[in-house]
Design a protein around this nucleic acid. Structure first.
Lengths: 204, 204
DNA sequence: ACAAAACTTTACTGACCAGTCAACTGGTCG
DNA sequence: CGACCAGTTGACTGGTCAGTAAAGTTTTGT
């Protein structure tokens, strides 16, 4: 019962490549097929629609980012706060490599799709929400570890994790607009500052 | 020499409306024209291309956001750190109003465009970079005021301002993915925490 | 009144869009 | 052998895309 064709895998790889390079709407099924060396009829043998391919590509890339960035950053034996630093450092390396290969900081596949499609396609929005929540859960565990280790005050762990994810995505956005991965290095320390609230009462 | 037609203004308003509702690529010139009650030939009388319309719409919206959000948040007589709070609160109100009117959190016009187009169209990327830098300058002034007032330690003012902008955009993104403007309220306090680094030496 | 400028209108390109279909190929069963 | 199955192929549909051309109308300044 072994697979007899890798056309589907090639289409998914092309989807990741081309949707990252441009956007969902700017890449047609025809171009996707040419890039993957597959005929259009075969495309619709494997996927029932372009949206269906997108949903599978999201799944695929979600696992890839987990493997390449989230797991190495969060599941290590590093002290909790260093894991956050590592998250930014790995992202920096990733975007820098992209820029060297293609001339462009391509940003986060999920963030890109989120802003392009989440007002248009509820199933994609929902899938992205789940992916982000999964990442937040990893961050949350790290923040909790930091609190337990006494590195952090007794903060709102869930909200802090959401804040760190939002900051992460925001910094990637700014790096993309400037086409400069260096921003991920320069602004990495801000993420720790989101957690380290020594509850100094300011402004009222 | 008074203007004899408001068709151009109507096209710009439609552009803002429809590009926010969906995206740049998903709104055609024809639809834009129908929404504005203008014939296609007239569109190309006022704009030399769809991209040209986009650049003018960016200019337009940049001024509008300045008027509606940045100026009220930053140019007030409020204490500096409250201005940041106000930035988030005004954004919350804005996105909440959008959701009530259209059922969707539409996010930031600039952020949306940035992630959709900044790898494809260098002139739009460049324009967005300038718009973000302008906002960062406003934030920077506020952060500097806070340092001068003794509310903040002697931090890197420029980097902190960039961090706050990135965080702002990131939180708007997350609010859009969840279709929940409430996140802008819940995560507002994180922005102050980005500034308040009481340089506690943690992790090594 | 007149001409020029500002604007509108209609009809048109040629390319591309997502998606469909039926015929076909080569391998693997019984 | 013959049927079945996974996958392939190329031609096709109807619609939409950005952009153009040229003639027509209205508004303005003089």
């Amino acid at each position: 019962m072994a697979r007899t064709s890798d056309a589907k895998e090639r289409l998914l790889a092309s989807a990741l490549e081309l949707f990252s390079e441009r956007s969902y709407a700017n890449v047609g099924v025809q171009e996707l097929c040419e890039h993957a060396g597959v005929k259009k009829g075969s495309f619709y043998y494997f996927f029932k629609s372009k949206q269906d391919l997108m949903l599978e590509a999201l799944e695929h890339q979600s696992r890839a980012i987990g493997r390449m960035i989230l797991t190495p950053a969060f599941c290590s034996n590093l002290p909790p706060l260093e894991r956050i630093e590592r998250l930014f450092h790995l992202t920096y390396e990733f975007q820098k490599a992209m820029k060297e290969k293609t001339g462009r900081v391509r940003g986060c596949f999920f963030g890109n799709l989120a802003l392009e499609l989440s007002t248009q396609d509820e199933s994609i929005r929902h899938r992205l929400d789940r992916i982000f929540r999964t990442a937040i859960t990893s961050i949350e565990k790290t923040v909790q570890d930091a609190v337990s280790a006494g590195d952090l005050a007794d903060i709102d762990v869930a909200a802090t994790a959401e804040a760190i994810l939002a900051y992460w995505e925001g910094v990637i956005m700014l790096a993309k607009v400037r086409n400069d991965p260096g921003l991920l290095k320069d602004l990495a320390k801000g993420a720790k500052e989101l957690a380290i609230t020594e509850t100094k009462d300011t402004a009222g």
